[in-house]
């Protein structure tokens, strides 16, 4: 369950992300229109939204609860009201997942709005499925980041928790950087899977998503605030 009033507040707090996405799209769109005059085909595979999304999801996910919990003290403010911990977790998660998904659907937005000038290389339904699969994997990484952040926030030995979390984050960022060095996705990676086999990639994301959701929620429900 999601808490409506809290969701409204979270949307307000994250308004800057939506403005960022809008600005990103407008600048990219204008750049493409102004930069080329020839009839060019639009290749969705060459736009590294997935890699960008993974980076943002990991870093943002790791900080989202920690910031509420430690720095702002807002978790205490909200949890002193009649809001369940499950509701709080779901609301924060959803408010972070929606902009991430929006970012993943940017290629589709580009192809639709650039249609009069460019041809896209893949049918639109295939693109939508690819973006959905990519979005699902970005949410998995967001959940992974949340779990890492919660581990660091509530670990009884704070320095140990933060050190372990920083190490895991660094390794994951290094892996993502390695994957995203080439423009073309590495065969076998989730990026490649999302592009080549979107439906199995989407299905494969559900299990880790469910597991990480459960672990994060359990942690929030049992943590001291």
């Amino acid at each position: 369950m999601v808490n409506g009033p809290l969701m409204k507040l979270m949307f307000k707090r994250f308004a800057w992300i939506y403005w960022f996405i809008l600005a990103f799209w407008l600048v990219g769109w204008g750049g493409i229109i102004l930069g080329t005059t020839a009839d060019v085909s639009f290749n969705i595979e060459k736009h590294p939204f997935f890699s960008i999304g993974l980076f943002i999801a990991l870093i943002w996910g790791a900080g989202i609860f920690t910031r509420e919990f430690r720095q702002g003290g807002m978790m205490e403010f909200v949890m002193a009201r009649p809001v369940s911990r499950g509701e709080f977790y779901n609301t924060v998660l959803l408010s972070a997942a929606i902009p991430m998904m929006s970012l993943m659907f940017m290629p589709v937005l580009y192809t639709i709005t650039l249609y009069p000038w460019y041809h896209y290389t893949l049918p639109l339904d295939r693109q939508l499925l690819m973006c959905l699969a990519a979005g699902a994997w970005v949410v998995v990484i967001l959940l992974l980041g949340i779990n890492i952040g919660l581990f660091a926030a509530v670990h009884s030995r704070g320095r140990y928790g933060r050190a372990v979390s920083a190490f895991i984050l660094a390794v994951l960022v290094a892996v993502f950087m390695n994957i995203s060095v080439g423009v073309q996705p590495v065969p076998g990676s989730t990026d490649w899977m999302s592009l080549q086999h979107p439906l199995p990639a989407l299905a494969a994301a559900l299990l880790p998503a469910a597991l990480l959701y459960y672990l994060g929620r359990r942690r929030v429900e049992r943590m001291d605030i």
Binding site: P5, L9, G72, G73, M74, E76, F77, R81, P82, V83
Partner: peptide, 21 residues
């Protein structure tokens, strides 16, 4: 130590609480 969303206006904090209770 009272904690609020510091960038919010006082009336927004009241509005949030009014809708939570």
């Amino acid at each position: 130590t009272p904690n609020f969303y510091y960038r919010a206006r006082v009336e927004n904090i009241f509005s949030l609480c009014r809708s939570l209770y």
